[in-house]
């Protein structure tokens, strides 16, 4: 434990309103603290900035999973455990459940939250690639405003994001899906081991076929760029076309230009490029095998 504890202030607001008022009074001063599974790691390492922390954990206004006019709204404080155990999410957004199950292990899943995973801003986070494939939106709330933004584009750079001083993520909204029941949901996390590891590459993709051609396709990766990344140009290579070997090779070549992996403590650029390409090819092979209506 290398932190000097008296340098850290913490308060527990009694309500969302109280939390937002505190943050509005001193914009940019308070750091929200949810499950603590990232912040407390930094604290023990002596790398958490001293200052004021606002424990929003347990606020009912930020909790719970509900269905709303076809969409699903997850409170920002929804834990990985809650995501993993939701039968409804398992049916409708299975990659999100796989991502939650791949995050840490039981004790982390009991505390870590979806909103925290997003705002922590790690490009290696497990749930964001799934959220990108499902076209998630974020609802951001402050004393002055409530706004809804697409999750794609929320991260503006390494650990930077479109979150204003005084704002909290209130919820994550997953729109009703249009791909139909035959869609392939493909989620793979490659790490040192199945539990507890931080990813070397995360790959999420959603696709459907019609008449031997790709009807729709979304691909998102983690740990290959300063932010999690939706790979639209790669999607464009295959959308509307049959998945012959030449097409798959072209997709791999384009993917390579869309990602920018680095050498770091967890892996190397070369390994990440290879794994990303292999996972893309595996996804496309499986997608082709689904055939789809009209085949």
């Amino acid at each position: 434990m290398r932190a000097y504890l008296p340098a850290y202030h913490a308060e527990v607001p009694g309500s969302l309103r109280a939390a937002l008022e505190t943050m509005a009074r001193e914009p940019g001063v308070w750091t929200p603290l949810a499950g603590g599974t990232d912040i407390m790691v930094l604290l023990a390492a002596g790398r958490l900035p001293p200052g004021k922390y606002l424990s929003i954990r347990g606020l009912p206004e930020l909790s719970g999973i509900r269905e709303e006019q076809g969409a699903v709204v997850l409170g920002a404080l929804t834990t990985y455990r809650e995501v993993r155990r939701s039968a409804m999410l398992g049916r409708r957004y299975p990659m999100l459940c796989l991502a939650a199950a791949a995050s840490g292990a039981a004790a982390i899943q009991n505390r870590g939250t979806l909103g925290g995973n997003i705002v922590n801003g790690s490009p290696a986070a497990d749930t964001p690639p799934a959220l990108l494939c499902y076209d998630a939106e974020l609802e951001l709330i402050s004393m002055a405003t409530v706004r809804r933004v697409p999750y794609d584009g929320f991260h503006t750079g390494y650990k930077t994001m479109d979150l204003r001083p005084g704002e909290l993520v209130r919820s994550v909204r997953l729109p009703a899906r249009a791909e139909g029941a035959g869609a392939l949901h493909y989620y793979r996390k490659v790490g040192t081991r199945s539990a507890q590891a931080i990813s070397k590459v995360v790959f999420a993709a959603l696709g459907s076929m019609e008449g031997g051609r790709v009807r729709a396709c979304r691909i998102a990766l983690g740990s290959v760029a300063p932010t999690v990344l939706r790979c639209r140009r790669t999607e464009g290579v295959v959308t509307g076309l049959p998945l012959d070997p030449a097409r798959r090779r072209e997709a791999a070549a384009v993917l390579r230009t869309e990602i920018a992996p680095i050498d770091d403590i967890r892996s190397t650029r070369a390994y990440r490029e290879r794994v990303a390409r292999n996972l893309l090819d595996d996804f496309l092979a499986r997608l082709a095998a689904t055939g789809g209506p009209g085949d």
Binding site: A10, E11, V12, L33, G35, G36, T37, M40, V41, L43, A44, Y53, S55, R57, G104, A105, A106, A107, I108, N110, R111, Q196
Partner: peptide
């Protein structure tokens, strides 16, 4: 939070006690 040696039950729920601030 990697190793689980500090695991306890907090309100009946398994947690890593090294990742729980007293305030929570």
């Amino acid at each position: 939070g990697e190793c689980g040696a500090c695991a306890v039950l907090l309100d009946g729920v398994l947690v890593q006690s090294c990742l729980v601030p007293a305030v929570q």
